[in-house]
């Protein structure tokens, strides 16, 4: 009886009955998010600019730096600076374009768990960041070899591996900051302005404050995340520097990120 009833209902949908549906693996989502970083014109040029600016910075170092400064430390510093601007932009746009360009309507329908999409974006951002930094350092290394050959000085590899790790950490924190502002603001223009306020306006304001108020200058590391994270570029951090980084990072980065994620998970996607 029941079999007969079932066959009566089934035939029209028989073609679908065989379909076995597996959940979407995280690796696939990360792969999709990485390709989404490149496939728009703005994304393409942003990623390409990593290579371009690294090359320009390297050439400039060869041309303008005095011969005794042609060491890897200076090349790395030269290529590292544009990275600290470009990478946070990549992080911001990866999040905000879903809202600003409204592609989130499709993205969050194909994957109805925004936490998974946002985690995939974070992973994709960090992978792209690591690749960019590796590329930039490689360009810097070529510059170091070529530059020292042109100048006729010995090639000097004067950065310890640990310092390279710190530079990567500093860039990763910059990307996370961009990511945080992205999930908080969820609008491309607003988030980019927000990031530049954070990266350019705030340090100037804190710097002015520090130069007039000694009590602030002594404690700036506890309050100013930017200040404490730029210490990473110098290498050789004291225990107190790490403590500054952890404390200032908790309220500049961690708390806003949590609030931003909470908002992004709940906001209406229109």
């Amino acid at each position: 009886m029941s079999t007969a009833a079932a066959t009566l209902e089934r035939p029209a949908r028989a073609s679908h009955a065989a379909k076995r549906i597996e959940p979407i693996p995280m690796t696939r989502l990360i792969g999709v998010e990485i390709s989404k970083m490149f496939d728009t014109r703005s994304g393409f040029w942003l990623m390409t600019s990593v290579g371009i600016t690294a090359t320009i910075a390297t050439i400039a170092t060869i041309l303008f730096a005095p011969d005794d400064s042609l060491n890897y430390g200076n090349f790395a510093a030269a290529v590292g600076f544009p990275m600290s601007v470009i990478l946070p932009m990549i992080a911001i746009l990866s999040i905000t374009s879903e809202w600003s360009q409204r592609s989130g309507l499709t993205t969050f329908t194909l994957v109805p768990h925004r936490g998974r999409v946002i985690s995939a974006k974070l992973a994709a951002t960090l992978i792209a960041g690591a690749a960019s930094i590796a590329l930039a350092f490689a360009v810097g290394a070529v510059g170091n070899v070529v530059g020292s050959a042109i100048a006729g000085v010995d090639t000097s590899w004067n950065i310890p591996l640990g310092d390279a790790g710190l530079i990567f950490l500093a860039d990763a924190l910059g990307m996370l900051m961009g990511f945080t502002i992205g999930v908080l603001v969820r609008s491309s223009a607003g988030a980019i302005v927000g990031y530049f306020v954070y990266a350019l306006v705030l340090p100037a304001a804190f710097g002015t404050l520090a130069s007039f108020k000694d009590w602030f200058a002594d404690r700036q590391g506890w309050f100013d995340f930017q200040f404490s994270s730029t210490r990473l570029y110098d290498g050789d951090l004291a225990k107190s520097d790490w403590a500054h980084l952890a404390v200032s990072g908790s309220y500049w980065l961690v708390i806003p990120l949590v609030v931003g994620l909470w908002l992004a998970l709940r906001s209406e996607v229109k």
């Binding site: 728009t40 374009s97 360009q101 409204r102 592609s103 499709t106």
Partner: peptide
């Protein structure tokens, strides 16, 4: 399909 215009214009 909720809104055909809701796509990244650059793709």
């Amino acid at each position: 399909l909720l809104d055909a215009s809701a796509q990244h214009a650059g793709r």
